[in-house]
């Protein structure tokens, strides 16, 4: 194990977040089991009070989760010096088999946590808590993912030993390699550009249509959600390449470094924000017919649509500006 201050911070943070979510899940289970809004029993009153605790815990836990994602990428980037052959976070994460699963799970849990907060916020707007069982069931789904992530993160750092020979990001994301990450890099640039800008156009179009007329929310939700994986694939396939101006370098982490003016953080934040807005809007679709939420859901969905439009517009803007003002032209394959 490497006793780096930020590693200690990450391990402590992940343990704390897991404890918070596990405690919240314990009460979620109790609420699902015994919730009865009609009853005035002492138990029901106690459960109603507990909903505030679960909301508060989840809000903090989700906030910490997003920050810890950035800290993890930062740390992985900083630690690359300790490993022969690693040139950035991509190489560090590849030192053992737990690195990449930990990052992927962290992103997934950020998305799930965001969607949960959207559901919770919507539910709290109605006096009869119509989504209470559904949202706490989702919480129970999130818990195993989060505990698994904590397990992967601890395994990753506990099994890190300096000087281990590891492949650098150049070989990991190069097009000759087999494997998941290399598979994304091998996606041809031009079709990927079409897919990326197509999905952005779909998000924008459906979002504006939805904001204008109030219908087409589902299309925006689906488009906004699917734009997330498409953008991640595009990031590895051609967006990162444009920033490095090097056709063989597909690493999604080097853009976080100072040389690229930390533009990676803007890309990651807009991606996460856009993904959560889209998935949140989609998740709310099936609750439009709930009587107490009839006025609430469209309002929240519109806010999510605004947020999604802004996030994805900034993302597209950053990519387009880079492509226009760079001397580098990526064509041919």
């Amino acid at each position: 194990m490497i006793l780096h201050p930020a590693v200690i911070a990450l391990l402590t943070g992940s343990l704390i977040v897991s404890l918070m979510i596990a405690y919240a899940a314990f009460w979620a289970y109790k609420i699902i089991d015994a919730w009865d809004l009609q009853s005035g029993s002492e138990q029901q009153l106690a459960l109603e009070k507990k909903t505030y605790l679960v909301s508060t815990l989840m809000t903090y836990a989700f906030g910490f989760q997003v920050l810890s994602f950035f800290l993890l990428v930062f740390v992985a980037d900083d630690l690359h010096r300790l490993f022969v052959g690693a040139m950035c976070a991509a190489g560090t994460l590849n030192v053992n088999e737990y690195g990449y699963p930990a990052v992927v799970l962290k992103v997934l849990n950020c998305l799930l946590g965001g969607v949960w907060l959207v559901l919770n916020h919507t539910d709290n707007q109605a006096s009869d808590y119509p989504l209470i069982r559904r949202k706490y069931s989702l919480l129970l789904v999130i818990v195993p993912f989060l505990l698994f992530e904590t397990g992967q993160l601890w395994s990753y750092f506990l099994n890190l030993k300096a000087h281990v020979i590891t492949s650098c990001c150049g070989s990991l994301f190069s097009t000759e390699e087999e494997g998941f990450a290399a598979g994304l890099a091998a996606l041809p640039a031009v079709p990927m550009q079409v897919l990326f800008f197509g999905s952005m156009a779909l998000v924008m179009g459906s979002g504006i249509f939805f904001l204008g007329g109030g219908s087409g929310g589902k299309i925006f939700g689906v488009a906004g959600t699917l734009a997330f994986p498409v953008s991640v694939a595009a990031l590895i396939s051609f967006i990162s390449v444009c920033f490095y101006e090097l056709p063989t370098h597909h690493c999604p982490f080097c853009i976080l470094q100072r040389e690229y003016h930390y533009v990676g953080y803007l890309i990651y934040v807009t991606l996460l924000g856009g993904g959560i807005s889209g998935a949140g809007a989609w998740a709310l679709m099936s609750f439009r017919s709930v009587p107490s939420l009839k006025a609430v859901v469209p309002r929240i969905q519109k806010r999510l649509a605004w947020a999604g439009l802004v996030f994805y517009a900034v993302l597209s803007g950053v990519v387009i500006l880079k492509m226009i003002f760079s001397d580098f032209v990526l064509i041919g394959y």
Binding site: P5, A6, I8, A9, L10, T12, G13, I16, L19, M20, Y52, L53, T56, L57, Y60, F64, L67, S68, F70, L71, F74, V75, D78
Partner: peptide, 26 residues
């Protein structure tokens, strides 16, 4: 100062403090 040092410090100090006060606050 690197931003990540500040973020690491945040996780070592603010996060434990916040968690310690959530339940009493509630």
């Amino acid at each position: 100062i690197d931003p990540y040092q500040v973020l690491a410090l945040f996780f070592l100090t603010v996060v434990p403090y916040t968690v310690a006060t959530v339940i009493p606050t509630w």
